[in-house]
Amino acid sequence: MSGRKSRNKGQRREREFAKIIQGERIPLSGAVGGRFGNDVEGLGLRFEVKARKKGFQTLYKWLEDEREKPDALALKADRKDWLVVMKLEKLLELMGLNEK
Rank of each mutant, 00 (worst) to 15 (best):
M1E: 13
G3H: 11
G3K: 07
K5S: 13
K5F: 14
S6K: 14
S6N: 14
R7W: 15
R7K: 15
N8M: 10
N8P: 03
K9P: 01
K9F: 10
G10W: 04
G10V: 06
Q11R: 14
E14G: 01
E14V: 07
E16P: 00
A18G: 03
A18C: 02
K19M: 08
I20A: 09
I21M: 09
G23D: 02
G23L: 06
E24H: 13
R25T: 06
I26L: 11
I26Q: 11
P27M: 03
P27E: 07
S29C: 07
G30Q: 07
G30S: 06
A31P: 00
V32E: 10
V32S: 09
G33Q: 08
G33M: 07
G33N: 10
F36C: 09
G37F: 07
G37P: 03
N38D: 12
N38P: 05
D39P: 00
D39C: 09
D39I: 11
V40M: 02
G42S: 04
G42D: 03
L43Q: 04
L43C: 03
G44Y: 06
G44V: 05
F47P: 01
E48R: 10
V49C: 06
K50E: 15
K50M: 12
K50S: 14
K50P: 09
R52H: 13
K53C: 06
K54C: 09
K54A: 12
F56V: 00
Q57W: 12
Q57F: 08
T58A: 08
T58P: 00
Y60M: 05
Y60L: 05
K61G: 15
W62P: 02
L63E: 01
L63P: 01
E64L: 04
D65P: 00
D65G: 01
E66M: 06
E66T: 07
E66A: 08
R67M: 14
R67C: 07
E68H: 10
K69T: 08
K69G: 00
P70Y: 03
D71N: 11
D71Q: 11
A72R: 14
L73D: 04
L73N: 05
L73H: 06
L73W: 02
A74C: 08
K76S: 12
A77D: 08
A77Y: 13
D78V: 01
D78T: 06
D78W: 09
D78F: 07
D81Q: 12
W82H: 11
W82R: 13
V84M: 07
V84C: 05
V85M: 10
K87F: 02
L88F: 05
L88R: 10
E89G: 03
K90E: 15
K90Q: 13
K90I: 09
L91H: 02
L92W: 01
L92N: 01
L92Y: 01
E93P: 02
E93G: 00
L94A: 06
L94E: 15
M95P: 00
M95Y: 14
L97M: 14
L97V: 11
N98P: 00
E99R: 12
